[in-house]
Design a protein around this nucleic acid. Structure first.
Lengths: 151, 151
DNA sequence: TTCATCGTCATACTTTAGGGTGATTTTGGT
DNA sequence: ACCAAAATCACCCTAAAGTATGACGATGAA
C-alpha cells in the first residue's frame, strides 16, 4: 500500500517535472524571467512536499493517557449525617444543591439539572454558605465533607 | 512555540529562494540547462516541504484510557499518588496550590500564605485547571480527590 | 552553552460567584 | 382555612474567578 502510493507520487512528480520543463520553454519564449519560474517551481514543490510528507509518513502518534479513577475498596459506605443537617437547618432541597456543588458543578449547571432558574440556585447557595459558615463554595465543600454531608 | 517554528521556516524559505536566485545566474552564466536548475530547485523544495509538513502538523493524539487504582478507605492514611502527579505534569508548586485550593482557600488567601502575588496564583490555578481538565476550582477539587492528589 | 521548564508577575478582559433585597408561590401542619 | 417555612424567581451590584498573552529570571539537563 505504501509502496503503491510511493510509486504514484513518484510518477506524478516525474510528470510534473516534464510539464514544467515544457512550460519552461513557453515562459522563456514569452520572455518571462527565470526568477518567476523558479519561484513557481519552488512553491509547487513545497506544497507537493508537504502533501507527500503527510501521506507517506505515518502520522506521528502521541499517546495521551486519560486517567480514569477506579475504586479499589467499595466497602466504604457513605452515610449522610442527618443530625448535622437538622442542626444547621439545611433543608432537603439545599442538601441536594450541596451535593451538586460538591461535584464541582457551576450554578448554571445545577440550575439545568434541577430544572430551576439560576437565581434560585444562587439563593440556595447563599443560604448554604450562611448555614455552613463558608465564604466560598470551595470552602463549603470542605466543611460539608468534614461534617459528612457529602461523600 | 509553533508560531516561532513557523516564522523560522518562513525565513529559511525566503533565504533559500534568494540563494537560489543568485545561484541561478551562475548556472546560466556557465551555460547549464534550465532543466537541471529546475530539477535542483524541485528536489530541494520537495525535501523542505516534507520537513515542514512533518514539523508543523500536530501529531495525532491517540487517547488511551488508563485505570488508576484509588482506595476509598477512610481509615487508611492519605498518601499522594505521585504517579498521577507525574502523568499529569503537575509540578511541586502546583500541587502545593492544589492542596490549598482543596482546603477552600481563595486566590488571595493562597497568595498570602505562599507569599506570592495573586497573579501568580491565578497562573498556577489556570494551569491546574488545564491539567486536571476542570472548568472550575470546585471541579478541580473533586477530580483531585478522585485521583488521590489531595486528602 | 543552549534549550526547555518552572516559577514568577503583569495587564486587560470576560465570566462566574456571591450579597442584598424583595417578591410570589408551594407546601405541610394545626 | 390559615400560618410558617420552604421554594421559587428577579434585579442590581460588587467581588472573585478564570482566560489570554507576554515577559523575565532561575534552574537543570543535554
Amino acid at each position: 500500500m505504501i509502496n503503491k502510493r510511493l510509486i504514484i507520487f513518484g510518477v506524478t512528480l516525474a510528470l510534473l517535472m516534464v510539464v514544467l520543463q515544457v512550460a519552461q520553454y513557453r515562459f522563456i519564449i514569452v520572455g518571462h524571467s527565470a526568477e518567476l519560474y523558479a519561484g513557481i517551481v519552488a512553491v509547487i514543490f513545497v506544497v507537493l512536499g508537504v502533501v507527500m510528507g503527510r501521506k507517506l509518513t505515518k502520522p506521528q502518534e502521541v499517546i495521551v493517557e486519560k486517567l480514569v479513577p477506579v475504586t479499589i475498596n467499595p466497602s466504604a459506605p457513605f452515610a449522610v449525617n442527618e443530625q448535622v443537617l437538622e442542626k444547621l437547618n439545611i433543608s432537603k432541597r439545599e442538601h441536594e444543591i450541596l451535593l451538586l456543588i460538591a461535584q464541582g458543578m457551576s450554578n448554571q449547571e445545577i440550575a439545568d439539572t434541577t430544572f430551576v432558574s439560576i437565581n434560585t440556585v444562587k439563593t440556595h447557595v447563599s443560604n448554604l454558605l450562611l448555614k455552613l459558615d463558608a465564604k466560598r463554595r470551595a470552602q463549603a465543600i470542605q466543611k460539608a465533607r468534614e461534617l459528612n454531608l457529602v461523600p
